[in-house]
Amino acid sequence: MLQLTRTDWLTLVVMLALLILPPVFLWTGNEFYLLLATRLVILAIAAVSLNLVLGYGGLVSFGHAAYIGIGAYAVGIPVYHETYGGFEAVAGYGAGIHILLAVVISAIFALFTGAISLRTKGVYFIMITMAFGMMAYYFFLSIDEYGGDDGLVIDIRSEIPPLNLDNPLQLFMIAYVSLVIAMIVVKTIVNSRFGMVLQGAKGNNERMVTMGYNTYFYKLTAYVISGAMCGYAGALLGNFTTFVSPDMMGWSRSGELMFMVILGGATTAIGPVMGAAGFILLEEFLSSYTIFWHLPFGLILIAVVLFARGGLVGLIKGKGK
């Protein structure tokens, strides 16, 4: 007999709402809300992937926006070259090449930066991941061919017949299905033997090492998986915004991703999704009132840190289980 906990119910309700509401918005003539939901779902994928390392691995990565940028450029650059010539090795409109590039380059970047960052711990790790994220930022900023500071317009969305990403509902559905898969992937990893080692290393690294685990490689593997998933989210985001710029990978973007995870509640499957939802809806709500919306927004973020540990999931779950 399947026993559903309160968190399971919460997960079901939130995911069903996310599935049903956006098409209803579209059919009732509120396409804007469908687009909002698509952005929300894509950022939720990034937050879910960050949660693997941040929530379950205790690795506070402050550079995850870099993967979003890498993923988006992995769409923008092939499309640019297919349209304007040059760099034939990557040029193309196909979703296959875009996703492959997004995932593989993100994984390589995560492997390289993770290998160095994971030699350190604590606040060093936070700052180094942040600095590596900025390294990626300045890298794209300095390439004039891809627009530098101004960014790159993605003229044509990834082609994935028989689907059509120009259709907003189809793009939403692809993002939604991707989110569900991402959540299942993270959940499966976390519950596996690998995931137990990862969580054990978060709880007490010295004990895990004494047991015989080379925790460095477990953390690095998780970091690479997380980076690759986040790169995939970036490829979706590039298709959604049809634009990519270094601004997508700045450190404040990384901070926002971290906030989504914490706001929703780390170490739960639905937490990052709710965090992304809370974050984006709040942003949308506040910015419709004033251009100075960052002020109340910042105050709310501070209040969350000071008073709402455990995030939204913690608040809803309450004390009972």
């Binding site: 033997r193 137990m196 593997t221």
Partner: peptide, 21 residues
């Protein structure tokens, strides 16, 4: 979980991602 992790450590490695531990 603590004890099971110590037992699991006897396996060559724990890069097993699918089956719930």
């Amino acid at each position: 979980d603590n004890v099971a992790l110590a037992i699991q450590a006897r396996d060559k490695h724990s890069f097993r991602f699918l089956k719930p531990a």
